[in-house]
């Protein structure tokens, strides 16, 4: 409020004096008051004090918010780290278990030819000829997966890489009976396109540890050449929250084919020939990369 020298008490009560103007502008709202203040000839200490208050409040708020957000970030970091450690731990465990894992597939065909001597005699009962004729000819087929796995049937699920070998050498759907000719005739590479298998890795964790947070989904892709990619990601959380990691396994495939023939003669009139054909495929996977 400002009193000039010419102002007296009566002037103060007139509608056109300064106080009156201030009241009028105050009724018109903040903006009118603010513009009125600038157009008036009185002081502006309160305006500048309010302006300073506003600036201090804004600056203080910014400083405080930046400080609290730094503290809040740490709790988010723990969540991100948990997702990272679950996936990397799973990848490390799989790598330890699958590196240098060897699967040996032996496909065998065994033909057994039994011959017996057939004699012809003349009228006096003297042997005139002796020929060995085939009395039976049978073929038996067998296929084994052994090596690291031990001998086992064709069913899936007995080990991750054993399943991969079954897909690579036999029918992609692995429906063969190992004692069939079809199983013997199957060859690597049986796959003509990538084969994907979805795996869910879960934990039975002790109390105090959340098993849900440890669950990992894996998609194993078997390529026709034998390369395997296993893509790991967190089972829970939205797509953009999940940590993803891919492990690639490279195969070393060795194939061997051999024939063997054994003739046994239990007596002079019988002969058994066993012709064995053996196809051996040895696949050893090594962890090539984790990225």
């Amino acid at each position: 409020m400002y009193f000039n020298r010419n102002m007296n008490r009566q002037n103060l009560l007139k509608p056109n004096n300064h106080l009156w103007k201030l009241r009028k502008t105050a009724k018109g709202g903040f903006f009118c008051s603010f513009t009125g203040k600038f157009s008036s000839q009185t002081g502006a200490s309160i305006s500048f004090a309010l302006l300073l208050f506003l600036v201090c409040a804004v600056v203080g708020s910014v400083v405080l918010v930046s400080g609290t957000s730094a503290a809040g970030r740490l709790s988010k970091i723990a969540e991100y780290d948990q997702r990272y450690y679950v996936v990397t731990s799973t990848a490390q465990l799989l790598a330890d278990k699958l590196d240098n894992y060897t699967v040996t597939v032996v496909q065998k065909s065994e033909e057994t030819i039994e011959k017996t001597a057939v004699y012809t005699y003349d009228s006096e009962g003297v042997v005139t000829s002796r020929t060995m004729t085939v009395s039976s000819d049978t073929v038996a087929y067998s296929s084994d997966i052994n090596g690291s796995d031990g001998k086992a049937s064709a069913s899936l699920g007995q080990s991750i890489l054993r399943d991969a070998a079954l897909y690579l050498i036999f029918d992609p759907d692995v429906t063969y009976n190992f004692a069939s000719q079809a199983a013997y005739e199957s060859n690597y590479p049986a796959l003509s396109a990538d084969k994907q298998i979805t795996l869910n890795i879960t934990h039975t964790a002790p109390s105090g540890i959340s098993a849900d947070a440890l669950a990992v989904d894996a998609v194993m892709t078997i390529h026709p050449g034998g390369d395997i990619n296993i893509k790991l990601s967190n089972a829970s959380g939205s797509a953009n929250e999940k940590y993803e990691l891919t492990m690639s396994l490279k195969p070393d495939i060795k194939r061997d084919f051999s024939n063997d023939s054994t003739v046994t003669r239990p007596d002079d009139d019988s002969e058994t020939t066993v012709n064995t054909s053996t196809k051996t495929t040895v696949i050893k996977w090594t962890v090539k990369d984790i990225y």
Binding site: T90, G157, L199, I201, T204, P206, A218
Partner: peptide, 30 residues
């Protein structure tokens, strides 16, 4: 450390990590 087990499934079917290892024992670090 505390210990627990890890298991793998394809749908409802159990898949062994290695032959004969239906579940794998693991140690947890907190």
């Amino acid at each position: 450390t505390v210990s627990g087990t890890l298991s793998i499934k394809n749908g409802s079917k159990a898949v062994h990590l290695r032959y004969g290892e239906g579940t794998v024992s693991v140690n947890y670090y907190k």
